[in-house]
């Protein structure tokens, strides 16, 4: 594997790391409201908006990110490079 080509990608990492650091550690995302009532769950339409907002974040423009698992594996097979995966979520901010 050509490490130098990977190093170029590392340029984008500080931005990614900053973005990640700003996130809250994973916890169940359905905290009960102060009254004890269940919080309102987002609708499918709201979830789609949240997903699209996440995908539009500037951090994903700083390097050649793909959001397609099949495409990632196909490219990895072709290039012989491993896949670096950043798992995140869009349904909670």
């Amino acid at each position: 594997m050509n490490i130098n080509r990977w190093l170029k990608l590392a340029v984008a990492l500080p931005a990614l790391i900053g973005s990640i650091s700003a996130q809250v550690p994973a916890k169940p995302t359905s905290p009960k409201a102060a009254s004890g009532a269940q919080p309102k769950q987002p609708t499918q339409e709201e979830l789609i908006v949240m997903r699209d907002e996440k995908l539009a974040l500037p951090v994903f423009k700083k390097a050649n990110w793909t959001f397609d698992y099949d495409a990632a594996r196909a490219e990895s097979k072709q290039s012989g490079k491993p896949i670096f995966v950043y798992f995140s979520r869009s349904y909670a901010h």
Binding site: L9, A12, Q23, P25, A26, K27, P42, Q44, L47, I48, M50, R51, K54, L55, F60, A63, N64, W65, T66, F67, D68, Y69, D70, A72, E75, S76, S79, K81, P82, I83, F84, V85, Y86, F87, S88, R89, S90, Y91
Partner: peptide, 27 residues
């Protein structure tokens, strides 16, 4: 190869359980 997987809870989005399949437990 940079790949970002989002857990979205949007019905119909592909690979909704990829995180747990790859032994992830949080974000």
């Amino acid at each position: 190869m940079l790949f970002c997987h989002l857990t979205t809870r949007v019905t119909g989005d592909k690979y909704p359980t990829l995180l747990s399949e790859k032994k992830g437990t949080g974000f």
